[in-house]
Computed example of a mutant assay.
Amino acid sequence: MQYLQAVISEAMRLYPPVSVNWTMCQSDDVLHDGTLIKKGMFVVFSAYYIGRMESIWVKDCLEFKLERWLDGEGAFRNESPYRYPVFHA
């Protein structure tokens, strides 16, 4: 089942079921990079794009590689829900 979980995770990284998500800010907020988000503004992010970012998934980001999800022993290892936002953490 470890291998199956890795296959599903890698497939969902490249082809997320909800590729773009948006939300409206309920109160003024500041993102971790210092960006000010005012109440009523929309914030949009693309899980499709994040799953293909070289800065996150390294140079082979467009390749289907199960090794991203399996440790040296072949056991499945989870990623941070913020690095892997397919479930929109």
Rank of each mutant, 00 (worst) to 15 (best):
D33C: 03
V20D: 11
G40C: 05
D71V: 09
S27F: 06
H88Y: 15
D60G: 14
L36M: 15
E73D: 14
D60F: 06
Y84S: 00
R52V: 05
E79Q: 01
W57A: 01
F42E: 05
P17R: 07
I8H: 06
Y82A: 02
L14Q: 02
F42N: 07
F42M: 13
V58E: 11
G40K: 08
R13N: 04
K38V: 10
L62T: 14
I37W: 02
Q26K: 12
K38P: 04
D28S: 08
E79C: 00
M41G: 13
S80F: 01
P16M: 03
V18T: 06
G74W: 11
M24I: 10
A75G: 08
V30T: 12
E10R: 05
E63T: 15
V44G: 12
D60T: 07
F76Q: 02
I8C: 10
Y15C: 09
C25S: 07
L66I: 07
M1R: 14
Y49C: 15
P81C: 06
A6P: 02
C61R: 02
D71T: 08
E10M: 05
I50P: 00
Y48W: 11
A47I: 02
S19Q: 15
C25G: 06
S9D: 01
G72I: 14
M41K: 15
A89P: 05
W57L: 01
A75T: 07
V44E: 10
V86P: 00
D28P: 06
F45R: 08
K39P: 05
V20A: 12
L31H: 03
I8D: 12
A89H: 06
V30W: 04
I50M: 03
I56K: 08
R13S: 03
F64L: 14
K38N: 12
Y82M: 03
E54W: 05
C61M: 08
W69K: 01
F76I: 05
V86M: 02
A89G: 15
G34T: 03
E73T: 10
D29H: 09
C61Q: 06
Y84L: 00
V43I: 07
Y82L: 06
E67Q: 13
E73C: 12
Y3M: 13
R77L: 04
V7G: 09
P16C: 04
N78V: 01
I8Q: 08
C25N: 06
G72V: 15
S46V: 03
A11F: 11
G34E: 07
F76V: 03
E73P: 04
R77I: 00
R77T: 03
E54H: 05
F87T: 09
R83N: 04
D60P: 04
P17F: 09
Y3V: 10
V18Y: 14
S80Y: 01
L66D: 03
D60W: 08
A75E: 12
L4K: 14
E10I: 02
T35R: 07
I37Q: 05
A11T: 11
H88W: 10
R52P: 02
F42V: 12
